[in-house]
Design a protein around this nucleic acid. Structure first.
Lengths: 345, 345
DNA sequence: TTGTACGCGTTATCAT
DNA sequence: ATGATAACGCGTACAA
């Protein structure tokens, strides 16, 4: 059962294979009539060009890749949707790849760069924690988006080889903590992740800083780490972690979780413990996912400007690809949205 | 800047390229020592084989594809996770492709089948509504999973060329409606989609059937269709649709939405209208996504056995690929989970 | 056990 | 405007 190829089309049309190729790729140097005839035969016969062969030969290919680490994270759903739109608007093809938790996103990128003819890469989620050596192997421009702000020690390097776009997680996290402190809360539990992933680490630092700046001592016993063995940012993890906290009997007047999913899980635990939100315990999240607006009570959160971030990510990447601009480190402001889940102590 | 290829590795190791190829593919016919030496050089030099070239030549390749229409649908998140696990357990590679709303999933499948050396395909979401002619072009086994049960007229054909796994949406939807009717509700609003996609259509039929069987007339004015111009199964759409319904002033004692996301959106609208759930209005969903357990109130729903469905999907597909089994039409039972969002009229 | 040579389906180059 | 032909990087008979 032979696959039907460009050769068969050529034979059937009585033309050379390069003519068929030209018809396929909208080449200018072709008679409109022959082109039409060829396309008709292609239609009839149901011929589909083999992408592997194309990628092997092609030199141009307007194509970028988006590598998402943690695709279940609803925060990325929106990002991806907008990225797809923007990419399409700019007549670029997009290959979207899901990176498993245990996979290394740079390895995947390297492989993809060879397979397709990528012109650029966007990393969503994951870390900066990659050896310089490995990162240097990437030959096309790439951008980290919403993975946090790199610590100062790698800034000089990064300026040269990649862009970064994110909100200032440390600052925004401090803002949320400040807000809760301003409401009179002192016993603010933090639900965060232990691992050294930038997101969790930065947001935890912001929480600490808020206490520090006021000369208040951080209530270490209220810093709760999510389970490592299940999805760090799932509702389930927020639920389990909050439940453990509440069962411990430690006094808590507010819970701040470093993601909205965690916060919603925490809400369920609070509710199950027979407490009211926010009258007995305030709950706050981070990210600004759609769910927070629909939850009952509506969730107070730090809303990241997803749309702007996504659009800027693509625009910057395409600019760098076209050499219209250098790599940049961009910080977007986020917004504290006060809704129903938080109140005075 | 020449890409580093298998040839370079061969030269650097002082061996032939086929030896390198053998090392790469764990071929038996190779001296363990040379193999080790080659792998070392590959490691050092950071060589990554070009997948396009591999796909072009390869004949075996244990690889299946999953095409997801509507990846934002949280119902699929879990499915995908389990499918990934199962696939990996069976030592198959998985290519996951996101199909845009306006794209035709069969076209995408056809293209992918040429590009990679696929052994099988899973369709998540989408429709059966494909011309037989086109569907016949797919040469590898494929399965529709959770897209509904095909109407009788295509069953005889389908038996031969593809498998289908799903719950009986019509039946389960009727079950939910029966449950609400049993609670004494008569003014049950339905939030569903107008388009002829199987999911929406089947679930609407079930709703009607429940009324019909009791000799009750269907409250046509309470059948609400979601907006076509935004994601059919989003919380936003549930919210907007329910809001319009409530504003109309029509009497309603229960709202049944054909997906949990829609139901949660509807809950928000009910709450905003100053009504209590379930005391004033009961709300029920369908699917059994994680969110429903965490929502406040917990959502009554029809829970699809996602895990079983996902596992069975992969197992059946692999069996068909290995010719251990014929294509099958499998119907899974779902479960009505009564939680907090529904109560007596 | 290893190396040589051919071909996978396509695009790019160079003639014509 | 069109056709022949050489790559692209790899896997695999086949020969050694």
């Amino acid at each position: 059962m032979a696959e039907i190829t460009i050769k068969d089309i050529a034979k059937q049309c009585g033309v050379g294979i390069s003519t068929v190729s030209r018809a396929l790729n909208n080449h200018p140097d072709i008679n409109p009539e022959t082109r039409k005839r060829i396309l008709e035969v292609i239609e009839e016969t149901g011929f589909i060009p083999n992408n592997s062969a194309r990628n092997l030969k092609r030199t141009d290919a307007r194509c970028i890749a988006v590598l998402v680490k943690g695709i279940t994270n609803p925060f990325f759903s929106n990002m991806i949707r907008i990225i797809e739109e923007e990419t399409q608007r700019n007549k670029y093809a997009l290959v979207l790849r899901h990176v498993e938790a245990q996979e290394d996103e740079i390895d995947v990128a390297l492989e993809l760069e060879k397979e397709k003819r990528l012109r650029g890469i966007v990393f969503l989620g994951g870390t900066f924690d990659h050896s310089e050596e490995k990162i240097n192997k990437l030959k096309v421009p790439f951008i980290f988006s919403t993975v946090g702000i790199p610590s100062t020690e790698c800034i000089d390097v990064s300026k040269i080889i990649f862009s970064n776009i994110a909100v200032d997680d440390r600052l925004e996290s401090k803002r949320m903590t400040d807000y809760l402190l301003d409401l009179g809360h002192r016993k603010i539990a933090l639900i965060t992740e232990r691992s050294e992933l930038p997101i969790g680490r930065l947001r935890t630092e912001g929480y600490r800083k808020a206490y520090d700046e006021r000369g208040l001592s951080v209530p270490e016993e209220l810093i709760c780490y999510v389970q490592e063995d299940i999805d760090h940012y799932s509702m389930e993890n927020g639920y389990l972690t909050a439940k453990k906290l509440l069962a411990s009997g430690r006094e808590v007047t507010a819970i701040y979780a470093v993601s909205d999913s965690l916060a919603i899980g925490a809400c369920r635990a609070v509710l199950e413990a027979g407490k009211r939100i926010p009258e007995d315990i305030s709950v706050a999240g981070y990210d600004g996912i759609e769910m927070g607006e629909y939850y009952n009570p509506k969730l107070t959160t730090i809303k990241q400007p997803v749309e702007e971030i996504a659009k800027k990510t693509i625009r910057l990447l395409l600019d760098v690809i076209a050499e219209r601009r250098e790599h940049q480190q961009i910080v977007f402001p986020a917004q504290l949205i006060e809704r129903e889940s938080t109140g005075p102590c």
